[in-house]
């Protein structure tokens, strides 16, 4: 579904990503793990088009999208839920969700998607007229995911969805991610929570200082001694 080849990118003069190649098969959950400042967010922002790729190519569903605008990528079904939720704090929950279906290509299914989002997250329905900024951390994450679902994603990129959440909420978020996959949405999950991210992944990539240092099935990576020492402290 998504193939990236030899991507390089960065900010200003400093290069952050060095020849990254990844393949995300349709229908799978792929986890991208790595420590802080490894370049995870830079990589997915390059995939979403917020960052320009300095070199390399990105192919989505057979089409080269390397030079497309972020909007054009969303239109094709490549949707990102950014790190830190990034809700519009002064907009109500409902208005945030409506922003998810801003594009004309998905506006037709707005009512249907809104109903589905409220069914998936009844909490959001209870709070639909409340300002998004007044929600709790867990509710905000739900709202951010629901907003992305409003864009009819084919590939959903989730950046650190468990960040800052209580353990019980984290397991809820991971359950929701699997529910979304069952609805035929391919998922790229970016996480520092290595154990959980890899245990539900079909495939995993480890990013270190801008290089992919390991890849394999989630199971395989979880049993790798080097990775266990580096990220799980075992």
């Amino acid at each position: 579904m998504l193939k990236i080849r030899d991507i390089q990118s960065g900010y200003g003069e400093s290069k952050v990503l060095f020849d990254i190649s990844m393949t995300i098969p349709e229908g799978s959950i792929v986890s991208l793990v790595g420590s802080n400042a490894a370049g995870k967010t830079t990589l997915i922002n390059t995939i979403s088009g917020l960052n320009r790729a300095w070199a390399g190519s990105i192919e989505f569903m057979g089409e080269d999208i390397t030079l497309l605008s972020p909007a054009a990528r969303v239109e094709r079904g490549l949707v990102q839920t950014p790190e830190g939720r990034r809700l519009f704090p002064d907009l109500s929950v409902r208005e945030n969700l409506l922003m998810g279906s801003y594009l004309k290509s998905v506006r037709g299914s707005r009512e249907k998607n809104l109903k589905k989002a409220y069914e998936l997250f009844p909490r959001l329905y209870e709070r639909k007229d409340q300002q998004a900024g007044s929600l709790s951390g867990g509710e905000q994450q739900m709202c951010a995911i629901a907003r992305s679902l409003m864009s009819c994603p084919k590939l959903l990129i989730l950046d650190e969805p468990s960040l800052g959440l209580a353990p019980i909420l984290i397991s809820q978020v991971f359950e929701i991610i699997q529910d979304i996959q069952r609805e035929n949405v391919t998922i790229l999950l970016v996480e520092q929570n290595v154990q959980q991210a890899l245990s539900l992944a079909d495939k995993g990539y480890v990013l270190e200082s801008g290089h992919i240092t390991m890849e394999g099935t989630g199971e395989f990576l979880l049993h790798d001694d080097g990775l266990r020492r580096a990220y799980l402290g075992i």
């Binding site: 809700l87 907009l91 409506l98 922003m99 801003y102 506006r107």
Partner: peptide, 23 residues
């Protein structure tokens, strides 16, 4: 309206808005 809402969204977080497909 959608356009008006998009203006408010851009005023609050333009990067997040562009991830929703807002130009």
């Amino acid at each position: 309206t959608d356009l008006g809402r998009a203006m408010r969204a851009v005023s609050q977080d333009k990067d997040a808005a562009s991830l929703m497909g807002v130009k």
